[in-house]
Design a protein around this nucleic acid. Structure first.
Lengths: 160, 160
DNA sequence: ATGCTGGGTTCGCTTGACGAACCTTGCTCG
DNA sequence: CGAGCAAGGTTCGTCAAGCGAACCCAGCAT
């Protein structure tokens, strides 16, 4: 009857939970939207502000937090005939949040759509739509939570 | 030089963005953690409260919102010798947020770890670790945002 | 009747989001 | 030279949201 083995309900240390940890980094309002824009190529403060409509103070704080967390890096850059400015660019750590963003987008496309999805992702070159998938290391397709066993502890409980 | 085609920076209607829409549903504080617990098999108010440590008022509000959005459903249930109570269970719409949660968890495992990941996901039966992956409909592996072309508009811009 | 338990609601306090206004630096234009 | 302007912030007052503690209520057990 239980969809997932409820063993984890008691023995799993929630204070170290990676979901909570990740949300502590990118879970504040605007943070993930800032990253969405970053993935779309936005780099400058004013462009983030215009795209998002977020208050400047909040945007300053979010960008600062994301830089402090190593998700973005703040780089000086030279526009010709203009003074030195900064731009915010994704680090590899930030780029690894891409599947998360795509997963959020895909869910929204499926359930919130009042029309066609506003943004489509195509595989570069091949042109086919890109989707998130769950898969195990043996290559099997994982349909959903019912196919997954959640186990507290390390990545593979090596016996003796 | 641009990592992604910046065409979308102007022509993409952000007010309808699916990332923003999804975050409007599950982006408040505690919402995604409530769902994490739901995926672990938690169903009752008191169990959510104990697992999360969230204020009751906030938890009441989040559960109510998630029910109103159709992510959870509130079901009466019968414990023997006890009065009628309710439990909160994932709907199919809620279950489809699983890849999002796994993506968040995987990122946290990779970048926030001070030790082994607190929770491991294994493919039921096969036992191999479960991961999120990006793939296109042709079956190609998609490594990251550089392999993706973001295009505003419908899922496939049908010509004429 | 008394208390316990699950599932909340109410209340003050503190934190965070918000928009408008202001500031600073270094261009360009007259 | 000085004025104006733009990017990138900071400051301020207001208002919503999160917080923990306390309280409430229905119904079963004693």
């Amino acid at each position: 009857m239980a969809m997932l083995t409820p063993v984890s309900q008691d023995s799993f240390d929630r204070s170290r939970c990676s979901v909570a940890g990740t949300l502590a980094v990118v879970g504040e309002k605007w943070s993930l939207l800032v990253l969405r824009e970053a993935f779309l190529g936005v780099r400058r403060f004013a462009d983030f502000q215009q795209a998002l409509g977020a208050p400047k103070a909040v945007l300053t704080d979010r960008l600062g937090t994301l830089v402090a967390e190593g998700v973005l890096r703040r780089e000086p850059y030279q526009a010709e005939g203009a003074r030195l400015r900064h731009e915010y660019r994704l680090t590899p750590k930030g780029r690894d949040l891409y599947p998360t963003l795509v997963a959020l987008m895909e869910w929204g496309d499926r359930y919130l759509a009042d029309g066609p999805p506003p943004l489509a992702l195509d595989h570069r070159g091949c042109g086919a739509p890109v989707r998130v998938a769950l898969r195990c290391d043996e290559g099997h397709e994982v349909a959903g939570p019912r196919d997954v066993h959640a186990r507290p502890g390390g990545p593979a409980a090596l016996p003796g």
